[in-house]
Design a binder for these strands. Structure first.
Length: 342
DNA sequence: CGACTTTGACCAGCGC
DNA sequence: GCGCTGGTCAAAGTCG
């Protein structure tokens, strides 16, 4: 009991032996994923991968390029093979060239296209705040209302909301990645508050909903486990943080100024701004998470291993339809059905 | 006591 | 309209 709880909520729980088990577990699926050891540190790639993603499975560590490939990102647009989807729009001038794997439902039908969606993140944010306030308007009175006088108010508000909701709200840009981990809620440097959990259709594992605890930051993430391979966790991020990572507040100040920034050249949070699709802070934090001091050395070693030869960094990555199908198979509820269903 | 999780209820969207 | 599902809320509980 206590062990179970520790496993999932104690950040210092020792997952190493479990991870060994996991690493010995051969993965037949050609899916990009990360192996997490102790709260995400290092994001080791699984060496057992030998198939279509083997290109980027060199060595045991992960670098920016790995991340970029996993996210369908590219530092150099000229070398980016993945064509943007038709309805995706291009990033505004000055935006980071990084592109997140957009899994908005609108783009899901064929492939996980890379796209700087968010025709307007600002728009989306605005919409989001509207819907949020609508929800509050809607829900608070129902619970707080004690007098009949509130009912008319409620009705009019409801109608008002209905009218507003008729305008279809665009989804916040989202991107997802798979992680091989025993921990559901991976440590990514940000602080999250769980606000819901739902049973997922066709899966024995529930989906958890988290929201960034920072005020006025509407970033959400969903975490669910693959029912086919329970060692795989899919994390979906929605929105962008409008603040710096609070990891520094948890004794991470030293690492925040680690040598890794060169990997994120030109992608400091200040140059990126709050509206670009891929949260650079997040990317940084993938590699510089909050961590247990006992594993600090290992972690630093992994950071250095991330500095890999340029040519390897230039390798291309593309998520094929086939792989998308596998993603679908793993997490059926997260992806719309392809039209090839029998 | 604040931060966080749990959990049942609620709501919207969608397909039938 | 009805039922199903995904997403969210918020009261209650837990923890440090």
């Amino acid at each position: 009991m206590a062990n179970e709880k520790d496993r999932y909520y104690n950040p210092f729980y020792d997952h190493n032996h479990h991870d060994d088990e996991l690493n010995n577990n051969n993965h037949s699926n050609n899916i990009p994923f990360f192996t997490s050891q102790q709260n995400f540190e290092g994001l080791l790639m699984d060496p057992s991968h030998t198939t279509s993603f083997s290109d980027y499975l060199h060595g045991s560590s992960m670098d920016y390029n790995t991340l970029s490939r996993a996210f369908d990102l590219s530092c150099s647009s000229s070398s980016h093979e993945v064509k943007p989807s038709n309805n995706s729009t291009t990033a505004a001038a000055g935006d980071s060239p990084l592109v997140g794997r957009n899994i908005n439902s609108e783009n899901q039908s064929t492939t996980l296209n890379s796209s700087v969606s968010s025709s307007s993140n600002e728009e989306a944010e605005e919409e989001d705040s509207i819907t949020k306030s609508n929800k509050k308007d809607k829900q608070q009175p129902t619970k707080g209302c004690t007098e009949d006088g509130d009912h008319d108010d409620q009705k009019s508000k409801k109608e008002n909301n209905k009218a507003k909701n008729k305008e279809k709200k665009p989804r916040e840009p989202r991107f997802a990645f798979l992680t091989k981990s025993e921990i559901d809620n991976l440590e990514d440097g940000y602080r999250w508050r769980k606000y819901g959990q739902k049973a997922v259709k066709n899966s024995p594992y529930p989906r958890s909903y988290y929201r960034c605890t920072s005020q006025k930051c509407g970033v959400k993430k969903r975490v669910e486990r693959s029912y086919q391979d329970p060692s795989i966790v899919m994390t979906t991020y929605e929105g962008q943080h409008n603040h710096h990572c609070p990891a520094t507040l948890r004794g991470n100040a030293m690492l925040m100024s680690s040598p890794i920034p060169s990997l994120f050249a030109g992608s400091t949070s200040s140059s990126m701004g709050p509206t670009s699709l891929v949260p650079q802070d997040f990317l940084s934090q993938l590699l510089i998470p909050s961590y247990n001091s006992s594993t600090q050395n290992d972690h630093q070693i992994m950071l250095h291993q991330n500095l890999i030869p340029q040519q390897q960094q230039q390798q291309q990555f593309q998520l094929h339809h086939h792989d998308y199908g596998l993603l679908q198979d793993l997490l059926p509820s997260s992806f719309p059905a392809k039209n090839n269903d029998p």
